[in-house]
Amino acid sequence: MTIFRFALMRGLRKKSMFAALFAVPLAMIFIRPLWTPENGAGFVFYGMVILFAAFSLVRLIMTDRVSGTIVRIFAAPVTTFQYLSQNLLAYWLILGIQTVVMVAVGAMLYEWGIEMAAQLILCYTVFAVASIALSLAWTSLFRSKVISDAVFSIVVSFMALLGGIFIPLSMLPDILRKIGMLFPTYWFSNSLLGIRDGAASREYWLSLLIMLLLSAASLLYGSKRRLE
């Protein structure tokens, strides 16, 4: 598990990364108006934090590819599966810890209850998987980190818009809602609505399942690119 261990180390080594992973979300959770039952914007905004954090972590894989380090890694007795699975698992663990800390603090501050906290953790960790997979597929399209970053910001804005992050899904025109269904952000928003509507909500579980299916597709696509 050398790759996994060092992926954790690299993910947390930079102060800017550490701050983005823990300081920003923790600062968010203390902004009470974001987390009221009437507003609830904090729940979806935190999803965006996860998406950008996932992208920053997966950029390390792109860095390996662009710098040529991946050539040296594959010159060792390492398979593509080992390299990707250990890296992605490390990133997911980091985001998972972030989510647990965030929800635990939120539960204490806003009395969410164990059931809701568990549903939120599941929803955010599944969305973390989807975000990591999407970021992997995205970075596999580019050779330049600068271009990848720039275009990603634009695309994520559209995804957020179509996914009901900025505007509630119920207020989106039907055609935009249908387009939004192609992106995990839509199903993430939908799963949060499911939590609001009740623990056994069919929407909640269906949304999680679709996020996982989209993740599988993105992972398959993103893992095809082995060497530059």
């Binding site: 690299r10 080594r13 930079k14 710098s67 040529g68 380090t69 050539v71 040296r72 010159a75």
Partner: peptide, 14 residues
């Protein structure tokens, strides 16, 4: 086998 790559392929953050 050991491979010394043409580019410097080391991790700068380690």
């Amino acid at each position: 086998m050991g491979l010394v790559t043409q580019e410097v392929t080391i991790f700068e953050e380690l």
